[in-house]
Structures are given as structure tokens and as C-alpha cells.
Design a binder for these strands. Structure first.
Ligand SMILES: [Zn+2]
Ligand SMILES: [Zn+2]
Ligand SMILES: [Zn+2]
Ligand SMILES: [Zn+2]
Lengths: 149, 149
DNA sequence: TGCGAAAATGATAGCGAGTCTCATAACTGC
DNA sequence: GCAGTTATGAGACTCGCTATCATTTTCGCA
């Protein structure tokens, strides 16, 4: 849940990691990273593109996808899917701090939650299966309090 | 994990449920349902289309998607996403029995697992958030034992 | 059993997220 | 600055999926 506090360092960490991996620093890449760093939850590529355009920092849509692909490969962002056939992305903090999502099938609302017992169960499962798990997705779908009437 | 035992009844239950909901019985719908009933894990729409064609039961691709949409709306199948931008579908047994998935990012292998502690944690979470949760997705991503070397 | 309204089906056009291509612009080491 | 290399962006393209619509099939009813 506490996301913003550490996210300012995420941008720096991420740019360092890219440098370390032999990438140069271009304007589009930096713009996408800085926008992502300001978020508290996931964004779609289109939303990132719109956001940058709105703040007069227009970037080619292809660049947005390219940056996201590189960041995902380096495990600096998590690509996730909450339905609707649109991929969403959010920063992966070095601390491992993260959250998961509740989606209301009726109104489309997306809420975040985090839960230690859940993380414990997931950690055990990965170990048990002999997998080196580096990410997990959890999405709960249903009707939120407002929609259930 | 135990899927096949109850899946033979799933086809009948599903066809009954459709009737009850006011749907007529068409050949395409029955073919898709019967193919799904024979599976132990998720299939994509294309895989279903290919499978039916291979068993000389060709069906329009549009019908496959339509049937899956209806079944998903009636919560008779679960639509899930293990990455790659392709939706997959698997029967939802009336018993509530189900499993989740481990995906190897290297070789693409998809394995199923089920775990009670995980289900308990998820149930608690839904209640806690005031959601009427009717489905949840859990996907663990990483490197399987074979790929990690 | 045969009719007709209404639903199911399938071919195909259309849509949109995401990828590929390639010419141009920007970065970096010299 | 210069050259070599990487990053960028416009647009063509791919492909999963949906919408459309003419045709076929189902099923209540006479
Ligand atoms: Zn989030
Ligand atoms: Zn988690
Ligand atoms: Zn499965
Ligand atoms: Zn479960």
C-alpha cells in the first residue's frame, strides 16, 4: 500500500540499472520512467502515452511499448492483466513491496490490496514446486460493495 | 488437481444451465462444451477451434468465441490469462474445485497446482474487502526446475 | 407432422492492442 | 566536432477478438 515513499528512488534505480545493462539514456525512456515513478497503481501503455502527451512530453507509441518491454525484461516493471485484453504496468520496487488487485466486474473499478498471509502462501507454493518465482499475479473479481446494492 | 472425475458431469450441468437460462441447443455450442469437458486445463479459443476441426467437427471461429462468452457470463467457464495476450478458458466445476497456474517464462510451460492455505487467504481477503468475489486468478511466473539448470 | 417466430451459426468485415520496419535524430567515446 | 552506434517515431502490419448479416436450425404450437 505504501508505494509513493520509495517510488522517487525507483526512477533513479531504474535508470542506473539500464545504464548498467548497456543502454543509453534517451528522452522517451526517461519520460516513461518518470511518469511511471509517479504512479501508485498500474497504467496501460495507452494511458502512459496519453499522460505524456497531456504534459507536453509527447512520445511515440512504439517507444512506450519498447521501453515497457525492456523494463519488464529487466524486472523493473511488472506487466499485469486485470482483464479487458489490455496489459498494464507498474513499477517493481527493489524492496519487493507490492500489492495485488480487486476488480469489480460491474463498474470496472480496480482497487489495490496487500496481504502478508497471501504472500506467505505464495512463497511456500513457489518453493514447493521447485520454481524460481520472480513475480506473481493475483486478481480477485466480483462485485464491489457499491455495485452489489 | 482432480479434474477429470467430475468433468463428465460438467457438460450435462452446463447444458442444463443454458437451457434454464433460455438458450436453445445448437450443434456448435454442444461441440465446444463437449470438447471443454474433456480437458484438464485451460485452452485458448484457437486451440478449441483447431481441436474441433481435427475431430471433423468444424465450427465457425465466431461461434467458438460466442459460446465462450455466454459460458463465461454464466460463470460456467473461467476466462484466464497466463500471458501472451491470449485468453484461455477452463470449466468451472459446480463443486468449486479448481486450480491455479505456474508459468515458466523461459520455456512457456504451464503447470497447474491447488493449495488450500492459498484459497483460505483469498477467501478472507474478499470478505475483508466487502467484495462478493466470484472468481480469482493466481499466476506464478518464474523459471521451472528444468530451465534454471 | 408441418409452420413460423426467434435464436444459433458461420463467413467475413471491422476494430484495436501491440509489433515490425526503416529513415531520422540523439547519444557517447574519440 | 565526428563517426559509429543506439534511441526514437511514423506508419504499415499482425492478429486476437468483436460486430454484422444472411442463412440455417431449433422449438412451441396448430
Ligand atoms: Zn496496482
Ligand atoms: Zn504478492
Ligand atoms: Zn488450468
Ligand atoms: Zn483458487
Amino acid at each position: 500500500m505504501s508505494f509513493a515513499p520509495t517510488s522517487s528512488t525507483w526512477a533513479a534505480t531504474t535508470i542506473d540499472a539500464l545504464r548498467g545493462a548497456g543502454f543509453r539514456t534517451g528522452g522517451a525512456r526517461r519520460a516513461v520512467i518518470e511518469l511511471l515513478a509517479r504512479q501508485t497503481c498500474c497504467l496501460s501503455a495507452q494511458e502512459i502515452w496519453d499522460g505524456l502527451r497531456r504534459e507536453s512530453r509527447p512520445v511515440g507509441i512504439a517507444s512506450v511499448y519498447r521501453v515497457l518491454e525492456v523494463l519488464a525484461d529487466l524486472k523493473l516493471v511488472q506487466r499485469l492483466d486485470v482483464g479487458g485484453g489490455v496489459a498494464r504496468y507498474e513499477p517493481m520496487l527493489p524492496s519487493g513491496d507490492h500489492h495485488h488487485h480487486l476488480v469489480c466486474d460491474d463498474c470496472g473499478k480496480v482497487e489495490a490490496f496487500s496481504d502478508e498471509p497471501l504472500e506467505d502462501a505464495l512463497r511456500d507454493l513457489g518453493d514447493q514446486a521447485g520454481y524460481d518465482v520472480d513475480a506473481h499475479d493475483v486478481v480477485l473479481r466480483g462485485s464491489c460493495g457499491d455495485c452489489r446494492v
